[in-house]
């Protein structure tokens, strides 16, 4: 397969790699770089388990080619915490009991972060709509949605205080 060199920033680190042009971003992250936090659930953009942020936007990395990500800045679940300090959303997923088997969790959290970044403090109904592309079979979504809402509320509150 024809290969192409790409350079990109992932979790604040720069990478220059030669990659087959048919390789998906998900395969590139998981198999070439060993960043296995994003998961393959359906490989057709339906389940959202592979969600990562590309230039701040949530993307089903199973549907994007690695070469399309050339020059972009990518954030995966592995890069979300600040050292030992978890992102508020990660902490909230733990504290609110929004994690069960956890297979969908990295994708859920990345989508949740993108929602908070983009919309600030959307309503619970808006969060439901925006997270429709992340499937979960364990939690029934109740705690996931509440956790994103609660985190958005507290992040807005904290930024107001500053």
């Amino acid at each position: 397969m024809y290969k192409k060199e790409i350079s990109l920033t992932i979790n604040n680190e720069s990478y220059v790699r030669e990659v087959a042009v048919n390789r998906t971003l998900l395969e590139f992250l998981r198999e070439d770089l060993g960043l296995t936090g994003a998961k393959e659930g359906c490989n057709e953009g339906e389940c959202g388990a592979c969600t990562v942020l590309v230039d701040g936007k949530p993307v089903n990395s199973c549907l994007m080619l690695a070469v399309e990500a050339d020059g972009s800045t990518i954030l995966t679940i592995e890069g979300l915490a600040d050292g030992d300090k978890l992102h508020p959303l990660q902490q909230a997923f733990i504290d609110e009991g929004a994690v069960q088997c956890g297979f969908c969790t990295p994708g859920m959290i990345m989508t949740g972060k993108a929602i908070i970044d983009e919309y600030g403090n959307p309503s619970e109904q808006e969060i439901r709509k925006l997270m429709e592309g992340n499937l979960c079979r364990c939690t029934g979504y109740t705690r996931v949605i509440k956790t994103v809402k609660k985190t958005a509320d507290s992040m807005v509150e904290n930024s107001d205080k500053k």
């Binding site: 936090g37 998961k39 679940i77 592995e78 978890l86 990660q90 902490q91 009991g97 994690v99 990295p106």
Partner: peptide
């Protein structure tokens, strides 16, 4: 008591190694 599960931190950071993650 409503104790929190012990495996959540690994699960929210992508550190949990599921079967598919093992090479």
């Amino acid at each position: 008591k409503p104790e929190l599960r012990k495996d959540s931190r690994d699960k929210v950071t992508g550190a949990t190694q599921y079967c598919c993650d093992i090479t």
